[in-house]
Every structure is written in structure tokens, then in C-alpha cells.
Amino acid sequence: MTILRLDEFQVLTLKPLSIEIKDEFICLSGPSGAGKSLLLRAIADLIIHNGEAYLDEKKCSEINPVQWRKWVGFLPAESAWWMDKVGDHFNKKNNPYLTLLNLPEDCFGWDVSRCSTGEKQRLAIARLLAQKPKALLLDEPTASLDPESVTAVELLIKNYAHEFHVPVIWVSHDDIQIKRLKNREFKIYNNEINEVMT
């Protein structure tokens, strides 16, 4: 089991946040521009921040950043691709998550430029999970997906989280989805991150 812990973690104008996330789903919501993505980007150590993040007892600032980013699997809201073929973005030639995401086996031969947004998003999730991250930071992972794919993604992430006991931060605007997934819910509002008590 991995524990993601933030200690007086603070980025840009957001108020400092101290939180411990165990083997659980944290749903994070808040208006656009409130700083949800900012927080995830900072936890992935992509932008400057104050305070400290820990995975188990490993300190972010003391771990090689390349290693840290592999551990905290961050899925940005929009996936990025830099080679022509889908398969060139994957290290291994077989990816067990493709079928679970309703993607055909031959999708590695697809041209990235011909994939739809939804296909790219599901491919990005498969690409991320293949790295075996110890935590998941998902920025609106299902925003561009059709209902069937939403179910597939939710199921896959849940199974992954349960199998490897990883903490999950899931950014969502969808209240019904939040109710469905959450163990705990946080809202960012006016630069403050507060737990929603129910």
C-alpha cells in the first residue's frame, strides 16, 4: 500500500494543504480556474511549489524527479502525442489495459492524427497505467468520453487502485460521478481546499 502525503503543500495562490491519502479515492472539484490542475501539476513536481509531498516516507524533493514522476501517475486533462504511430508511445508491445478500455489489439498501428479525442484519452490512460504508478492523479479523465467508456475507465481505475492499493486523486465536475467514486471529497474555492463533509 502506498500513502500519498502532502505537508503544508502550497502552489501559487492556493492556501497550504496538509493531507494524507491512503488506499482511497479523493474526488476534487471546484470551478474552472480554481487551481485543480495546478495542484496536480505541482504534486507531479512539474511546477514550483512550497511544502513537501511524500510517497510513503519518500520525500519528493529528495527523489530523482524522473523517478518521482513515474511513481505519481499524473494524467493531464489533454493527452499529448509526439510520434506518428500510437504504439511508438508505449514501452512494451503488449498492454493489458487496452481491451479493458474497449480498444482493439491493433490500435498500436493507428496514426495518432486520426484518433478521436476520446480514443486518445483512453490510450493515454493505458499508457499511464503501463508505468505501474504508485499513485494516480487524474485530471478530468472521463471528460471527453462517451458513457460506455466512462464506465470502462471508472471500473479499470477502481480495479487498478484496489489491486495495487494506490491513492487516487480524481478531478471531476460531475457530481454524480463524484458520488459514485469518492471515499472523500475536496472542493477548491477561493484558493482554499476544503474537505466536503457529508
Partner: peptide, 12 residues
């Protein structure tokens, strides 16, 4: 976006 995506995936 591409550079950051590659960093995220653990490239140096």
C-alpha cells in the same frame, strides 16, 4: 504540452 507529457511519463 508534449515536453511535459514526456516528463510526466518519466523521461528525463
Amino acid at each position: 504540452a508534449v515536453i511535459e507529457a514526456r516528463l510526466i511519463l518519466g523521461q528525463d
